[in-house]
Design a protein around this nucleic acid. Structure first.
Lengths: 159, 159
DNA sequence: TATTGTTATACTCTATAACTATA
DNA sequence: TATAGTTATAGAGTATAACAATA
């Protein structure tokens, strides 16, 4: 028998207690990760970047101001030398610009170059394509319900 | 002005074209990954497993039948020696049982031990706790809409 | 001969320690 | 002295190549 009266959507209501939603969300997330990660990982390897380097690029891309090396080190939870090597490779490839901080010449300020920006855009596009492929595999009803579920969260979460 | 008539939920309808849903889904997934990955990574490191070993455990946990080493190698996309070393560590720790295949003595069959099963359950519980924490941070309306969106997908996706 | 798995060796990435330059 | 970053060295983890056992 039906658990409750159906709303105007015409569909039966579903259990939406915390545990049920968390469980279902986990199932969807797992599948989505598979869909969206494969091409992304392949692209990073193809381009010859390490994941640490990709994280550095993303961090610098999100930053409004030039960042010193130790800021990346702390945010990513990696040692100074590890970041130093990763960034050095990015500088040599022209993805990142590294300049002395005139106010403290011990510090080096890092900024994304136009090439680095294009690199990020490339990786973001690949990620998005994977997610889009997942959404395209849904029925119209599934997509509409999912959109109604994630839209308000996206509005609130996105910076 | 309003894009269309509001349904019985009392909320405005939202755009649910593929690109919009994919974009919003990406935002939510990103936040969810942050919420659910931190403790998981810490737990894996704390327990002294490599991520390859955790993947091996999950794979053996999902398998109905004992699996030979090269099956893990192919599924995970890693070299035979890498899997051999990872599995060897799991065998020494009593997480996995490794026996000769009586029908082909070149092959070794791998199965999860009861201890390995407990290890997986532990990691799954930590993952779930992270997702649950995310869901608990939602308002009732947000949680109900999200549940309605992911529930039908979970029904269809889960094995 | 071909295949399954292991051992030998080299490479990459990271961490700790030592070092340089600046504050 | 303390701090930012780099260089030196050692430890994981992986891949390719060489090997052993079985088919």
């Amino acid at each position: 028998m039906h658990a409750s009266v159906s709303p105007a959507t015409g569909a039966d209501t579903v259990a939406t207690d915390v545990d049920t939603v968390a469980t279902d969300l986990g199932v969807v997330m797992k599948q989505l990760l598979v869909s969206s990660s494969r091409d992304f990982f392949a692209a990073v390897e193809q381009a010859g970047f390490t994941f640490t380097q990709v994280k550095c690029l993303h961090l610098l891309g999100d930053a409004a101001e030039p960042r010193p090396l130790n800021a990346l080190s702390e945010t990513l939870g990696l040692s100074g030398p590890a970041i130093s090597r990763a960034v050095d490779g990015l500088v040599q490839r022209g993805e990142v610009k590294r300049t002395e901080d005139p106010r403290d010449r011990r510090s080096k300020l890092l900024t994304l170059s136009p090439r680095g920006r294009r690199t990020i855009d490339h990786f973001v596009a690949i990620r998005f394509a994977g997610i889009k492929r997942f959404v395209e595999g849904l029925t119209d009803d599934e997509r509409e319900a999912l959109g109604a579920g994630v839209s308000p969260l996206a509005r609130r979460l996105e910076s």
